[in-house]
Simulated assay, not measured.
Amino acid sequence: MFPSPNSNQRASNSLPLPQSSASRARQKVVLQPGHSPLDWANLKSKNLRGLPPGAPPPQFVKVTPKELKLHNKVDDCWTSINGKVYNITPYVNFHPGGVKEIMKSAGRDGTMLFNKYHSWVSVDRMLSNCLIGRYEP
């Protein structure tokens, strides 16, 4: 006899669904009020580069590894992804994985980490107004 579709019980011969190692390792992070993806979408319409007025446009800015390493704190956080440097300071508290996870790429090239967990995400679109310039290793 088969269980009814509305039954909350599992058949005794069913096996638990496998979990990927990535889903087991991730912790749920509760974001603070005002830090949802929709809030970020509204905020990112502003210039979030964090550079002084009159700074050259991103296409003219070259960032070296030495310069990038200087920006590795929660209140001053840059990362390089796919050859571009972004000021992720405004995004740190919006990151769905939490501050601790995004800080793993602070002050360094975060391309491998980003692509490992977010290969389907368009970083250019998500962080367009945070673009500092080109990464020049």
Rank of each mutant, 00 (worst) to 15 (best):
L68Y: 05
Q59D: 08
A25F: 04
V74F: 05
S7P: 01
H71M: 00
L70S: 02
S20H: 14
P56F: 13
P58F: 13
W78N: 04
P96S: 12
M1P: 00
F94D: 01
K46C: 01
S20Q: 09
K84L: 11
S105V: 11
T89I: 03
L17W: 07
P52N: 12
M1T: 12
C130W: 13
S21I: 09
R134D: 11
A106Q: 13
P90A: 09
F94A: 01
L51C: 08
S20T: 15
V85E: 09
P16I: 09
K116N: 10
F2W: 10
K104I: 05
H118W: 15
K100G: 02
D124R: 08
A22R: 14
P37E: 13
R134L: 14
P52W: 15
E136H: 09
R134W: 11
S122L: 04
R108H: 06
R24S: 07
L70A: 08
G133W: 12
W120A: 11
C77R: 14
K46D: 05
T79H: 00
G107I: 09
V123Y: 11
V74H: 13
Q9I: 10
K84P: 01
A22K: 14
R134T: 06
R49H: 02
A55S: 15
P33W: 07
S45A: 14
Q59I: 05
G98C: 00
S23V: 11
R24T: 13
L48P: 00
G97H: 06
I102V: 13
G54F: 03
G110E: 07
K69L: 04
D76K: 12
Y86H: 06
N115T: 04
G107W: 14
K62L: 10
P16G: 04
L15W: 15
N87H: 05
V61Y: 09
Q59K: 10
N13K: 08
S23W: 11
D124N: 10
P96H: 13
S21A: 06
G98D: 09
V123P: 00
N47V: 03
G34V: 03
R24G: 01
I102Y: 03
S23A: 11
N42F: 02
R125M: 02
P56N: 11
P65W: 14
I132M: 09
G98Y: 07
N13D: 15
R49P: 00
A25N: 05
Q19L: 14
